[in-house]
Amino acid sequence: MYTRYLVDPLHRLTRAYFRHLRHAMAGADIALPMGQVRAVKVVSLLMPEATPHALAQALDRDKAQITRLLNELGSAGLVGRHPHPDDGRRQLLTITAEGLALLKRLQQLEQQTMARMSAGLSDEDVAHFIRMADTMTANLDQRGSQ
């Protein structure tokens, strides 16, 4: 296996994780693209102040991409849009009952995937990996904005 640079194992891990998760989702009859899955999860985390603008910022996507994504999620019955009670120009996003059921199923699949991924590792190993990954991400975010 070719491992000359840090990015090589990172790339393999990311691909293996998403390949396993997509396979688990297919086995659970969840046919959503990962981008839509991520959007539903982010809306649930942003609630009760989830807005299209906040979603765009969290996903680092432009307004047109978010509009298309929300239209798809709305058509699938996963996310609803409602007028903001304090500002008629804004919308609030909510997760529907179907979206909540999907999130519950996804959480179970993600937990199973993470358990398989971290088999043979101690809690300390996992915590160390998370700290390193968070530091590397912060380093790139800081340098990317300079």
Rank of each mutant, 00 (worst) to 15 (best):
M1H: 13
Y2E: 14
Y2W: 12
Y2G: 11
T3N: 13
R4F: 15
R4G: 15
R4T: 14
Y5S: 12
L6N: 12
V7L: 15
P9M: 07
L13A: 11
L13W: 11
Y17T: 09
R19P: 05
H20M: 13
H20N: 14
H20T: 15
R22A: 11
H23N: 13
A24F: 09
M25G: 04
M25E: 12
A26Y: 09
D29H: 13
D29E: 15
A31W: 08
L32K: 05
L32S: 05
P33V: 09
P33C: 06
Q36V: 02
V37H: 04
V37P: 03
V37K: 02
A39Y: 00
A39V: 00
K41D: 00
K41E: 01
V43E: 01
S44G: 02
S44D: 02
L45W: 01
L46P: 00
M47W: 00
E49R: 04
A50H: 00
A50G: 02
T51W: 04
T51L: 04
T51G: 03
P52L: 02
H53S: 09
H53V: 11
H53N: 06
L55R: 02
L59K: 02
L59R: 01
D60F: 00
D60P: 02
D60Q: 11
R61Y: 10
R61N: 06
D62M: 02
Q65Y: 07
I66E: 01
I66R: 04
T67H: 12
T67I: 07
T67N: 10
R68L: 12
N71G: 05
E72D: 11
E72N: 08
L73G: 03
G74Y: 06
S75L: 14
S75R: 15
S75H: 14
A76G: 06
A76V: 03
G77E: 03
V79N: 00
G80M: 03
R81F: 01
P83H: 03
H84N: 06
D86Y: 06
D86F: 08
D86C: 07
D86M: 10
D87G: 04
G88Y: 10
R89T: 12
R90N: 05
R90P: 02
Q91L: 14
L92K: 04
T94Q: 02
T94P: 01
I95Q: 01
T96A: 00
A97H: 10
A97P: 06
G99S: 05
A101N: 11
L102M: 08
L103G: 00
R105E: 14
Q107H: 10
Q107F: 03
Q108Y: 09
Q108W: 09
Q111N: 11
T113E: 13
T113D: 12
M114P: 04
M114F: 13
A115R: 14
M117R: 15
G120R: 10
S122G: 13
D123C: 08
E124W: 10
V126W: 08
V126Y: 08
A127S: 11
A127K: 12
H128C: 08
F129L: 14
I130P: 05
A133P: 05
A133N: 09
A133L: 14
M136S: 10
T137M: 09
T137Y: 07
T137N: 07
Q142N: 10
G144R: 11
Q146R: 10
